[in-house]
Design a protein around this nucleic acid. Structure first.
Lengths: 195, 195
DNA sequence: GCAGTTGCCTAAAAGCTTTAGGCATGCGCA
DNA sequence: TGCGCATGCCTAAAGCTTTTAGGCAACTGC
């Protein structure tokens, strides 16, 4: 009958990522993917363990892409320049590839996460902080805070939180980066413990 | 046969919220809810339009609970005290009710969102800023940044991002609140536009 | 040109969603 | 107390997704 289509775990993962950007990561389904390759659903199960496995692979792909883009953007930059470039890459990736971005939030089991490009991305965040010198325990707090701001901002923006109200998101983003730079330059020393 | 159970949109919504906290918001299903009431699935469709409607209602319930808790925490506080209390309510709610918290991120259509308790919550964020005086355009940027940090931090924490590594999340959270307070006290003035 | 592997298929079971239509329970009213 | 009617929950059914088992045919390499 029909010739072989040439399915591959690789191709399925890529197509899954594109599908995610089109219809949303949550709507990525083995069935829909099969439809796109004009192939019966069961055929995919030779290349992908199950739906969860497919999503995990898409997530790993997205994390790797994001880390690569960030590494490229960071090359030759330091200080606020590096911070802004890193932040922009993150936000732009999310806006250009909302489905893939959602995939980066897919909960991975600890070993998978530890082997993912996510750790590379985290190391880059820490590298940026070398431009501002913070003592060690504070550095970790700052890394976590940067991650929170970037992820939080992009999530809310993608959810439509900042649209349809002035000032526009572009401007706020720029001010947020300014604020983070200022904050890292004047990182507060620990006060008395809260009650 | 079996007596009437007394289903209500209200009761279904509440039970749905509990279910979300137990198994995760994404796993909330009309079928599972029916099982919990020991009732046939179709019976729920008299009280709830469809699965999406159910999730919307759970989302609205969670937003209202969160806004109520925040309002209570804010009463009689100002400045950093208010900021910390507001932040803690947000984080504690998310940790005690992860499913409901996830529900607060459920995308609502614009009119529904505008009529939700979400706007009340946003207004409270703005009220906190009255303790730090920022000029108007900057105030909006700051509101968005606070929202981003809170949401981002809590999301990452819930996803397990900060567990299994020192220092513990409790400490970072406290430092993040310190940092936000410091930042609001020294909010940077707009620099030259980025190229 | 043959053997063997691999790839895609048919078949089937199980679960979730949603709609249509039916019976009876339990309420209001006489 | 008993009647009528509305409402609440049920049966039935179709359509979709996931996942497994097993089969045939098409490529690969010899």
């Amino acid at each position: 009958m029909a010739a072989r289509v040439g399915l591959t775990t690789e191709r399925l993962t890529r197509a899954g990522a594109e599908l995610a950007d089109e219809v949303g990561f949550a709507q990525v389904t083995v069935s829909e993917l099969a439809r796109r390759f004009d192939v019966k659903v069961a055929s995919l199960y030779s290349h992908v363990k199950n739906s969860h496995d497919l999503k995990t692979r898409i997530s790993l792909l997205a994390l790797a892409e994001l880390a690569d883009l960030a590494a490229e953007a960071l090359a030759g930059r330091a200080g606020k320049d590096a911070l802004a470039a890193f932040a922009d890459v993150y936000r732009d990736y999310a806006r250009e590839h909302p489905g893939r971005y959602a995939a980066t939030q897919f909960p991975l089991d600890p070993e998978t996460a530890a082997a993912s490009a996510g750790v590379r991305h985290a190391q880059m965040t820490r590298a940026i902080l070398r431009g501002y010198d913070l003592p060690e325990p504070e550095q970790t707090h700052a890394v976590r805070m940067l991650g929170s701001v970037f992820h939080g901002y992009v999530s809310l923006e993608l959810a439509g939180g900042f649209s349809h109200s002035a000032p526009d998101s572009e401007e706020t983003w720029s001010r947020v980066v300014d604020a983070l730079d200022a904050l890292l330059c004047n990182w507060p020393t620990p006060g008395p413990p809260r009650p």
